[in-house]
């Protein structure tokens, strides 16, 4: 394969012994990470399937005395999270053009939008009249939003690390894997949220 093409005339042993470790992983890391994300998405799809099965088969679906979820606030939250996917894209473009401060500003903006989403999620959770033990609906709602929220939190954390590392001199000499992977992860979290929003809030 062309990806591992090695000039046979080269003294490859000496060259590869030096480059063992870091360089080995460099080429394949993003590929491996995307394979991981595809696999990870199956966990969400399994939860979604569970939600659909419960919703279409359970006798008393919503907890007693609860009418349905409020959509307005979560919709604002959704808009913020979805737009952050575009913001992180611009941040990445700035980095590709070696505009470090442009990258940092847009990157920080993404983090702020992610944090706003988490804050909005927390506020919504506080205001709900049911808990995770209130029947199957309560359990599924907190499981789905909680598991997704955990991913958003992880994403913001990763972004924080990448922001910190951008101040290390010559950080991007060996490629921009960290930033690219974080960006992929963020888009993944975003797409999952859109599906989740349709499933929980739109389809009531």
């Amino acid at each position: 394969m062309s990806t591992t093409s090695v000039d046979p005339n080269l003294n490859t042993k000496a060259a590869s012994l030096e480059g063992h470790g870091e360089d080995h992983e460099e080429d394949h890391r993003l590929f491996g990470f995307i394979v991981f994300l595809l696999s990870e998405s199956v966990i969400f799809f399994s939860f979604f399937t569970g939600y659909i099965v419960f919703k279409t088969s359970a006798g008393d679906w919503l907890p007693a005395g609860f009418e349905g979820l409020e959509v307005r606030e979560p919709l604002i939250n959704t808009a913020v999270l979805v737009s952050s996917s575009f913001v992180i894209y611009f941040a990445e473009r700035f980095l590709h053009k070696d505009n470090l401060w442009g990258f940092r500003i847009f990157w920080l903006l993404t983090m702020a939008m992610g944090s706003f989403f988490l804050y909005g999620q927390a506020v919504e959770w506080m205001g709900l009249p049911f808990g995770f033990t209130s029947g199957v609906f309560g359990g599924m709602f907190y499981l789905l939003t909680g598991f997704h929220g955990l991913h958003v939190f992880t994403g913001v954390l990763l972004q924080g690390i990448m922001l910190g590392r951008s101040f290390i001199p010559n950080n991007y000499e060996e490629g921009e894997f960290g930033v690219e992977a974080t960006s992929w992860f963020w888009h993944f979290v975003d797409v999952i949220w859109i599906l989740l929003f349709i499933l929980i809030y739109v389809w009531q």
Partner: peptide
């Protein structure tokens, strides 16, 4: 493709067993 589905089921079972959800 398959293992994450078991993970999902195992997480729900663990929640049922420990914190009292009712999946």
């Amino acid at each position: 493709i398959g293992l994450p589905a078991l993970t999902a089921g195992a997480v729900m079972l663990l929640l049922d067993l420990t914190v009292g959800t009712s999946f």
